[in-house]
């Protein structure tokens, strides 16, 4: 059941009538609309939002690590509709080792953002055309933006030494 506040956001209403199980939670944080999407539905929801609701732009994707909470990660999608001048944040709660469907087929912009999350958080995206590390060298160990990755201490990565 959706909170009352989301009933006022037309997009959330429309999404729920399209697929009642897509939205699992929602909130309006400081005037910004946030919808929690069931992880297995994220690609379909994104496609629906893009084709039917004018969200032609993907601003970016990022992750937040809530270690030691479970599920541990939140993947955040920043959507923007220039035509309606409307912004929307989608979130998926993902456990460690859980895969997400890639949204590169919906927006090409997702390509590098998903690679960045794979690199820095260690979350894999099913169906991504080129899922490699993007910031760090290929032979790097660990995922630096995880909360259990140390901030201090040096680690070098020279392949040929």
């Amino acid at each position: 059941m959706l909170p009352e506040i989301l009933r006022e956001i037309p997009v959330a209403r429309a999404l729920e009538s399209w697929d009642p199980s897509a939205i699992v939670d929602g909130a309006t944080a400081l005037g910004e609309a946030v919808l929690y999407i069931a992880p297995e539905k994220i690609r379909d929801v994104c496609r629906q939002l893009r084709t039917e609701h004018g969200f032609a732009r993907l601003g970016g994707i990022t992750g937040v690590d809530w270690y030691p909470a479970s599920p541990r990660f939140e993947i955040v999608y920043f959507l923007h509709s220039i035509g309606n001048n409307e912004r929307l944040r989608l979130k998926c709660r993902v456990a460690e080792g859980q895969e997400l469907d890639s949204v590169t087929g919906v927006w090409r912009a997702a390509n590098w953002y998903e690679r960045e999350i794979y690199d820095l958080f260690g979350i894999t995206f099913r169906g991504h055309p080129d899922l490699r590390r993007i910031m760090l060298p290929e032979d790097w160990e660990g995922h630096p933006l995880r909360k259990d990755y140390p901030v201090h201490g040096h680690r070098y990565s020279y392949k040929d030494e």
């Binding site: 993007i134 910031m135 760090l136 060298p137 630096p144 933006l145 990755y149 901030v151």
Partner: peptide, 13 residues
């Protein structure tokens, strides 16, 4: 890319 990656986002935390 990534040659200038300095982990600023991690540092912020």
């Amino acid at each position: 890319i990534g040659y200038l990656h300095t982990g600023i986002e991690k540092e912020c935390e």
